[in-house]
């Protein structure tokens, strides 16, 4: 039964953040390690996680800083990479239906990462919890805290922290794909197979021909466009 009391909403959000936390801690740890390898101090690594809070962009930022790219070039590249996030808020509020609230969206939207978006969508789609801003604060806080904490642990552990554990290092590297696959399975419905196939195919093709960043954005738009032009009944059954 979906619970709807205010405090239950925040607690449910924290509970729902558990899989994200498990995924974020090792990845953020890896980021902290990579940041110190790239010559950043622990404070700089934690600062990037605190204010940027966008995993892939942060790893790319390390590469750009390492190559000595000008600030403007780095900023534009990273901003373009995060453009995909414009789709998340409206898609979530649409899924929330009559429960949609956005009075404090200026605050909870800060934590609307890929994983928070995907997990929240799955929770709403399965009817485990109704949308509430407290739920969004709960899931956002759990994910954010684990990201910042993981970064700090990795940064203070230093650049050679995982060198003696290659198997663990490899397993941590598969954490993010595993999380996305699990999220995909949790929202999967038969009617969505065509749009998912198009999203996957477009991402692979454009990543190969142009760039991974272009691949991500075009894959999302192409998949959503297929869902848009298909018969309404076919797409309506997708996440309800």
């Amino acid at each position: 039964m979906p619970s709807s009391s205010p405090s239950a909403g925040f607690r449910s959000g924290l509970t729902a953040s558990l899989p994200i936390t498990l995924g974020y801690l090792p990845i953020a740890f890896s980021f902290g390690v990579a940041a110190t390898r790239a010559g950043l101090g622990a404070a700089e690594a934690v600062f990037l996680s605190l204010v940027m809070y966008a995993g892939a962009s942060q790893f790319l930022a390390l590469a750009l800083i390492g190559t000595g790219a000008p600030l403007a070039v780095s900023a534009v590249t990273l901003i373009a990479m995060n453009l995909r996030h414009v789709l998340y808020g409206p898609a979530l509020l649409k899924q929330a239906g009559a429960d949609a609230r956005k009075k404090h969206a200026w605050a909870w939207a800060f934590g609307l990462t890929d994983e928070v978006f995907g997990t929240t969508l799955g929770v709403l789609a399965r009817g485990q919890h109704r949308f509430s801003e407290r739920f969004m604060f709960g899931i956002g806080l759990g994910a954010y805290a684990s990201w910042v904490m993981g970064t700090a642990l990795g940064a203070f552990a230093g650049g050679g922290a995982l060198e003696g554990f290659p198997t663990l290092d490899a397993a941590l590297g598969f954490m993010l794909p595993a999380l996305f696959l699990a999220l995909l399975l949790s929202v999967l419905r038969r009617a969505q197979l065509p749009l998912i196939a198009v999203a996957i195919g477009t991402t692979a093709l454009v990543s190969w021909l142009v760039s991974p960043v272009a691949g991500i954005f075009s894959g999302m738009v192409a998949g959503a466009a297929i869902g848009m032009i298909r018969a309404p009944r076919a797409t309506k059954g997708n996440t309800a």
Partner: peptide, 28 residues
């Protein structure tokens, strides 16, 4: 409810997750 924008937003979630999964697997 059955408008184009509504359907676009409803399809965005699964499309986004499928895209991010693909993008994370490709380098592997």
């Amino acid at each position: 409810p059955e408008g184009l924008f509504d359907r676009f937003l409803s399809a965005t979630g699964p499309a986004a997750i499928a895209t991010l999964f693909t993008a994370s697997v490709l380098p592997m």
